[in-house]
Amino acid sequence: MRSTIVRVVGVAAGAAVMLAPFLWTVVTSITPDGSLAGGPTLIVEDPTLAAYRELLDALPMWRIAFNSFWIAAASTLFQLVTGSMAAYGFARLAFRGKGLVFGLYLATLMVPMQVLVVPLFIEMKTLNLQDTYLSLLAPSIASAFGVFLLRQAVESVPRELDEAATIDGAGHLRVFTTIVLPLIRPTLATVAVFAFMGSWNSFLWPLVVIRSPELMTLPLGLSTLQGQFTTDWAVVMAGSVFSVLPIAVVYLLAQRHIIAGIAHTGIK
């Protein structure tokens, strides 16, 4: 019993360390100008939303948040479709050069974004796509990581199931959509979590390819709030609250699935 109390106190202290920065962000964002230099106070004397107004004047924040959302949603959808189709192809179809093609997929998995960023930027410039939504989305239409995870999932679906359906006259498309897809749902969820988070958090590629404020995503928009010499911390923290809030809501709603999805990859 005593050990349980000690444990709860320890875990609670840790949780306080994890949550305090978020609380502090909110507090800073509603602290009036000028009282920040005086050091931290938890209770704000006269809270103000001035920093939020300043933020909305400085950047098209609603548009930027919307960009982050739809780009993340679109790349998730693309990766689920392209990934599950490829997974079916690799797991269920016999064709020449399959081993080689799969090897090439795996090779792209190992190349870090940093290697690609310069030539990809040049490619976009040549195609006249730089500073467009398409350039933002292009590198995340397909992910070899997703293909890899999904192929394993498709392989664990018993072949007897598709054979039975084939005998009943179902073609590949029917087998894929009505038998395989429903059975690999947990892995689809894992891939979706990784795809959404990857896009939502992505910074290097948007930083390189996007210039116009109305095409920016949240991480990029936020990073521009830092001044060269002085930084208005209330505004920066307001921006942080603005960008954490939507994802925190999504997270709280889907918490169980997100954590299960992440845990799922670690066991394999």
Partner: peptide, 9 residues
């Protein structure tokens, strides 16, 4: 919670 927060934030 910090895991789902972006690096920039």
């Amino acid at each position: 919670l910090p895991v789902v927060t972006s690096w920039v934030v």
